[in-house]
Nucleic acid binder design. Structure first.
Length: 225
DNA sequence: GCGACAG
DNA sequence: ATCTTGTCGC
């Protein structure tokens, strides 16, 4: 289950960093993926706090086609603290993925993997809890460093932390900012980049786009009453 | 001590 | 995270 305080989460992250699960690779045929997302009330800025109202979503896809959606309101378990995102969102997101009609082959998460103070970001943690290979996607690195790749779709460049390649900048579209792709649970950098390239039609990979849209629709519906 | 810091 | 503004391209 999910740690409920920072000390317990840090302990769990240190444990996760020592695990070496078997690497996963996509099989032949249509890829069954999922994306999960959480959004908060509009107009509220800052790190927030425990109890913040949130809307979560998980969407299951066969290749690029959404086939199931789950949305639910929930409460953040903590304010946002860099390195402790799992404390805030872990239970909500894992619960929603667990409601999908089947387990995906790979789950895309809005968070880092090995680019983390203890090499165990939310993408790693969710994958371990759910026993699902994961790939993280963020707008920017948490700690890793590296220059942008050329402005060509498919171009990548490494992001390093303490001399290790822990993530990659990826141009999913020319003319826009690259995304950061993070290997998570049972994925390596090459596999993570390949999965994102396969699932990205627009800038944001379709599983995350679909989940973000579903979460925001749930928020909008709630605001109307 | 100070700043930086996924969402 | 979320918002606002401006700019570019179709």
């Amino acid at each position: 289950m999910w740690p409920t305080d920072a000390d317990a989460l840090v302990d769990r992250q240190r444990e996760l960093a020592t695990l070496t699960p078997a690497p996963w690779r996509p099989g032949v045929g249509a890829l069954v993926s999922a994306g999960c997302w959480a959004c908060f009330r509009r107009g509220v800025s800052g790190p927030g706090r425990a109890g913040d109202l949130a809307w979560g979503a998980a969407v299951l896809l066969e290749e690029l086609r959404p086939v199931a959606r789950r949305v639910a309101p929930g409460a953040a378990r903590a304010g946002y603290v860099p390195g402790l995102l799992a404390l805030r969102l872990g239970p909500l997101l894992s619960g929603l993925v667990g409601l999908l009609p089947r387990r995906p082959e790979v789950l895309l998460v809005d968070g880092t993997g090995r680019d983390h103070p203890r090499r165990a970001g939310l993408a790693v943690h969710l994958g371990a809890e759910l026993d699902v290979p994961t790939v993280g996607v963020t707008h920017r690195p948490l700690l890793a460093e590296g220059g942008w790749p050329p402005d060509v779709r498919g171009a990548t460049s490494p992001l390093l932390l303490d001399g290790d390649v822990v993530a990659a900048w990826v141009r999913t579209r020319a003319g826009t900012r690259p995304l950061v792709v993070h290997p998570g649970w049972r994925t390596d950098p090459d596999t993570a980049v390949a999965v994102v390239g396969r699932l990205a039609v627009r800038r944001t990979p379709e599983p995350l786009r679909a989940a973000r849209q579903a979460a925001r629709e749930a928020r909008a519906a709630a605001s109307l009453g």
